[in-house]
Nucleic acid binder design. Structure first.
Lengths: 195, 195
DNA sequence: CGCTAAACTGAGGCGTCCTCGACTTCTGCT
DNA sequence: AGCAGAAGTCGAGGACGCCTCAGTTTAGCG
């Protein structure tokens, strides 16, 4: 079962390829922020000064492109999550984690759809997200501030729904939804965002 | 400001037009159930045995087609809502109303997106929906079972989010989200669906 | 039966997705 | 410096969907 390591003597990745990849990521980020994740990929390629085939060479699917974009962002997010998970107040930590993820997911319109569409490329992030969610729910349950059987999956559903809502209604409406669900989830209601 | 009624001596609508309209609605219903509201309209026209131009003649936009489809369904739904609104238990009525609408909205994948996309054609149903929601929240507040400032708009947001969730996660997950939010909304928690 | 408005038709312009064979350029090696 | 070839790039092109509109058909009415 061990790899006989064919030792393909990997060449260093080409400089122009790296440049194009970076350029594509930058433009995709901009375009997705402006028009949502459904934006034209040909437009992205055009803006990046690159042929459409080059885009597909780097990112075979739209989901792959989004996943690459998310990767760096997620680094910071997960770090923040891990930090939060250490905090003293499990209920507040859980609430803040959910809110942070929702803020994060609202970066591109349509991201929520992508995330819950079950694209293989995005599953990695999702799995990690749910796992981290489980940590929060377990701590909260241990502290006795969590309603019965809430799980990380419930958190994930809530986060997606709230992110989606943020894209369609106003952010305020989405926040009210979030408050409602968190109030139903936690026995000690967290301090609502609005004073 | 009164209409000088040009009295255009209206002709009876043509029989073939009515037939085609019915056929288009029937096929659109089927296709949207199978593939969601994003399905190809050319496909709908094909299945209805009609040219694409005919479809556009009857329904100038996708939203118009969806609105027409929803109209009859909404009749029944609003009737049910009015009935519920008379019931003895405001909290239970509100919860059941929300659940009923979510069930209804889950008929076509992507319907939630359409509803909250602010299409003029669909605003009519939405307005009526929110108005009815206000009746439920007001009754519940009067009975003292509603958290502070919840409005019909909050209900609408919740319903859309839950419907969207139902389309993407499992129905069970969406129901859990709904339970959570309702628990946060109502001070007397409604009996959860699951024992 | 003929007139006419209403309705139907479907080709066509445009945009997007994605592929693939031909072409270019960079890297590693001598 | 020069070369071989792997790696990367290009962009035309087929497939499909949206929507329009000029030409044609057809049902209702007198």
């Amino acid at each position: 079962m061990s790899d006989p390591q064919p030792a393909p003597a990997r060449r260093r990745p080409r400089a122009d390829a790296l440049r194009n990849r970076q350029r594509l990521l930058a433009e995709a980020d901009a375009v997705f922020r402006e028009e949502g994740t459904g934006a034209s990929l040909e437009g992205v390629a055009r803006r990046a000064g690159v042929a459409i085939g080059t885009l597909y060479g780097h990112f075979p699917t739209r989901a792959a492109l989004i996943a690459a974009l998310l990767e760096e962002r997620n680094q910071a997010l997960f770090a923040y999550g891990a930090e939060l998970a250490e905090g003293p107040d499990p209920a507040a930590a859980l609430a803040e984690w959910v809110r942070a993820v929702v803020r994060h997911a609202a970066a591109y319109q349509g991201l929520a759809d992508q995330l819950s569409a079950g694209n293989d490329e995005l599953n990695e992030s999702c799995a990690e997200m749910t796992a981290l969610g489980d940590r929060f729910t377990e701590r909260a349950r241990a502290a006795g501030v969590l309603r019965g059987d809430t799980t990380g999956a419930d958190l994930f559903t809530l986060m997606n729904a709230a992110a989606w809502s943020r894209e369609h209604d106003t952010p305020e409406q989405a926040d009210r939804l979030l408050d409602l669900a968190l109030a139903g989830m936690l026995t000690t209601t967290p301090p609502p965002a609005a004073g």
